[in-house]
Design a protein around this nucleic acid. Structure first.
Lengths: 239, 239
DNA sequence: CCAAAAGTGTTGGTCGTACACCCATGC
DNA sequence: GCATGGGTGTACGACCAACACTTTTGG
């Protein structure tokens, strides 16, 4: 990256929120900054947009460089343009929401993780709190740049969209074989509140099973034995 | 504006969708391009973002230069980054939704209208159709740049947000004195479909009157006599 | 070894709210 | 003719309760 940027132009970057659901909790990947500004602080992965690529292409390139993950869900979140948001100069950031199932991240060898670290995300009226794997907690204000604000915007958007889109399926480890309880757990993690299983089941079935987007798999295909009553396996069809 | 842009950098512009509701129909202001590219075509008002201003400031400045209107509602819509969206060079556009009540636009003298013209907006499964004051119709593809796509995105966003935000009040000519039927007309114009008056009334009253956001004005303040049963005047309180 | 407990998945009901659709009344 | 209000049926979420099937636990 640049240490000093030209004074007379605006630079365009993309910053990405790589989100996943792990053990019933929304998680996010951050990288620790090595260089100024904000050395040592945690930040969203980002990069400059080249003059010959669309922002989405820059996001793809950034993802490729960091993680051996392809075809992740990606959606533009918001564009942040405050004049002083980067002390190096004038940098406009287009933030993108990226969703990767946790199983795909967990399968990545340590060395190919692009220096990223996982943080639990909690956003309420008080503010944003992030919890690292080692239990270290930090608030949105302790991140580099305005990235705390960007993350808060992303979580709110996610919470809104999970209600009226099928974005929740993007968090499933295996869309071709999942339990409704897993999907419910995604909702609970994103919304950060319990969801009534009875209504959830009815809503999902009428919204998605009746329309053919998901289908119950044959009972012959048994799942690994867990505790309790065996759950019905579902399969996501099209998207 | 520039005719030729530097090759080695990305320019950032704002484009604004100035929307209003007039006679039960959603309307939008466009300006006719005088210079290449797309000379003679209709386009959204836009301008470059200066290196020392946030995008919102650029929107304010653009509005000030064109219309004698202050304090209009303004919200970021989406950022368009396709590499070839502007033949002059690499231009990223941050689109903003601006809402101005029709009465404020109608009160502007001809000479201070910034060369803008009003178009009725119709968006359905077929596509986007715009109808000028002279009855001339054009489709989204006949606009300059990717502005047809931008407008379609804006209308869709508006339709989504009118359901779960109080954005509809921004269209009211006089928020301190309006009829519920006027508000209903805003909904019908934006959604482009009839709204049941009975349910609308109940929904608005439970959502906004019970919470104090709107209040019925004293019956003593009479409205100008119109046809039919006199309507109750309402007042918007806070925002 | 067997029976009870506990955990998980699944189905059912009720209640209140909200909307679609229609109709009645006030002025 | 327009504004306002009521009524019925349907859909859905909150909340609660029951049942099905399994593993775990404890005597």
């Amino acid at each position: 990256m640049h240490d000093f940027l030209a004074q007379d132009q605006i630079f365009v970057t993309v910053d990405i929120l790589i989100m996943t659901v792990r053990e019933g909790r929304l998680n996010l990947l951050l990288s620790r900054r090595a260089n100024p500004p904000y050395p040592g602080r945690w930040a969203l992965p980002g990069r400059l947009v080249a003059t010959d690529e669309a922002a989405e292409a820059a996001v793809d390139r950034l993802l490729e460089e960091m993680l051996p993950v392809r075809g992740a869900f990606c959606e533009q979140l918001y564009t942040f343009t405050d004049v002083d948001r980067d002390p190096r100069g004038r940098v406009v950031s287009i933030a993108y929401l990226v969703i990767v199932p946790w199983a795909r991240l967990a399968a990545i060898p340590e060395g190919q993780f692009g220096g990223l670290r996982r943080f639990g995300v909690a956003l309420d009226a008080v503010g944003l709190r992030l919890t690292g794997e080692d239990g270290a907690a930090l608030t949105g204000g302790e991140l580099a740049f305005d990235h705390g604000r960007i993350i808060a915007t992303g979580v709110q958007r996610l919470r809104g969209k999970i209600e009226y889109t099928d974005i929740a399926f993007r968090f499933l480890n295996d869309p071709s074989a999942f339990y409704l309880s897993e999907l419910q757990s995604v909702f609970e993690a994103v919304l950060d509140k319990p969801v009534d299983g009875s209504n959830f089941r009815r809503a999902i079935q009428s919204r998605y099973e009746d329309t053919g987007l998901i289908a119950q798999r044959a009972p012959s295909e048994q799942a690994p034995k867990r505790r309790g009553r065996p759950a019905a396996l579902y399969r996501l069809n099209q998207p």
